[in-house]
Amino acid sequence: MNFIKRAFLSTKAKKGRSFLLLLVFSVILIFVLAGITIQSASNKATEEARKSMGGSVTLAVDREKTLQKPTENTDSSSAEDEGGKRPDPGSYQSTPVDLEAAKKIAALDHVASYNFISTTSAGAESFDPITSTDTTDTTSEESTNQGGPGGSEEGGNPFGKGNAQGDLSVMGILSTETLSGFTDGTNKLVEGEAITEKDKDQNVVLLEQSLAEANSLSVGDKVTISNPTDSTKTYELTIQGIYTTTASDDAMASNFSFLNASNQLYVPYTFANTLKGDTYANAVDSVVYQLDDPENVANFVKAAEKTG
């Protein structure tokens, strides 16, 4: 223990140098601790920011596989596709996502929330959609000149057989509370209630404020819309809420009213499926899964693929 005594005496004898060394070591220690604290806070902030941004995964049908290729070779020797085959232009099939498969994936780890998406169009029966002069003129001209499917003179759908155009764009969802348009601030509910899972199988709708004001409609009123493929089929909906939107109109909105952001209706996915027909009885167009952390996206996708 003699060296400890000598060190103490040396420190006591050289107070100035000892104080200076103590000060230097203290400053170094403070900077080290400050660096560790800043790094820890930075990592925590990064993690919180990453989680707040969230990570989303969309389940939808592979579009490439919806274009069927014929089994026989084409006659064209210039065909560059594999095996001399090419997709049949009339073979496109819209295949919905099965709800049972979607719910099985929703039960996997790291799923914070999920939303069903089913989109279609509809005709406005008891009210007027937001339109422009161009839209009205174009619609009138098409009705007069083009007529029905294939341009017949008997009236009908000017967009060809099997296609439908309504006055309104209809989006069926499980909940507007987790829909990107409402979570990112593009849309904002100003009156009434949001659509949630409890509204499944209910004929309720959210209307955009401009559309509601133009038709003197308010929460609790009823509106009637028609089926996009059969205008004789009509449905009565109760206005559950009114929202505002800052979404930009599509460039073609002046020609087609259903592309106008004010003509966007939000309904429960079950009602949208009713408009779409029996094929969508237990299916939707897509499912969006919001994960608890973007870092878990890769593992979630692998787990989802294993469900088959």
Rank of each mutant, 00 (worst) to 15 (best):
T224I: 06
Y243F: 15
M252A: 15
I225R: 07
N227I: 03
N263G: 13
G241S: 03
I242P: 05
S248Q: 13
F256Y: 15
I242E: 03
N255C: 07
N260T: 11
T246C: 05
I242C: 06
D250P: 08
A247S: 14
Y243H: 13
S226C: 10
P228Y: 09
S254Y: 01
S248H: 07
S248W: 00
T224W: 06
D249H: 07
A251Q: 11
N263L: 08
F256Q: 08
T244I: 13
V223E: 03
T224V: 14
K233N: 14
N255R: 14
T234Q: 14
E236L: 00
A247G: 09
K222P: 02
N255E: 14
G220P: 00
F256C: 02
T224D: 05
M252R: 13
D230T: 05
V219L: 04
I239C: 09
F258R: 08
D221V: 07
A261W: 01
S254Q: 10
N227D: 15
P228H: 11
D250K: 00
N260K: 12
I225A: 07
A261V: 15
A253L: 06
D221S: 12
E236P: 11
F256W: 07
Y243E: 10
S254A: 12
T234L: 09
S262V: 03
S226D: 06
T232A: 14
Y235N: 03
T224C: 04
T244L: 01
I239P: 05
N263R: 11
T244A: 06
T238M: 07
S254D: 12
Y235Q: 05
S231H: 14
T238Q: 12
V223L: 04
T232K: 13
I242Y: 00
N263T: 10
T234M: 11
T238C: 07
L237P: 04
F258Y: 15
S262Q: 15
D249P: 09
E236H: 04
K222A: 08
F258D: 10
F256H: 10
S262L: 03
D249A: 09
S262F: 02
N263M: 11
N263H: 11
N227A: 07
K222E: 10
S226W: 02
V223F: 02
P228A: 10
I239E: 04
T229A: 13
V223R: 01
A261E: 12
S262C: 03
P228C: 04
A253M: 04
A251L: 02
K233F: 11
K222N: 12
G241C: 05
S254L: 00
Q240D: 04
A247C: 10
G220I: 01
A253E: 06
A251S: 12
T245C: 11
S231P: 10
T246P: 10
I242F: 05
M252S: 14
I225E: 01
D221Y: 07
L259H: 04
K222W: 00
D249Y: 02
T238W: 02
V223S: 00
I225V: 06
T232S: 15
T245V: 11
E236G: 09
F258W: 10
N263D: 13
K233M: 14
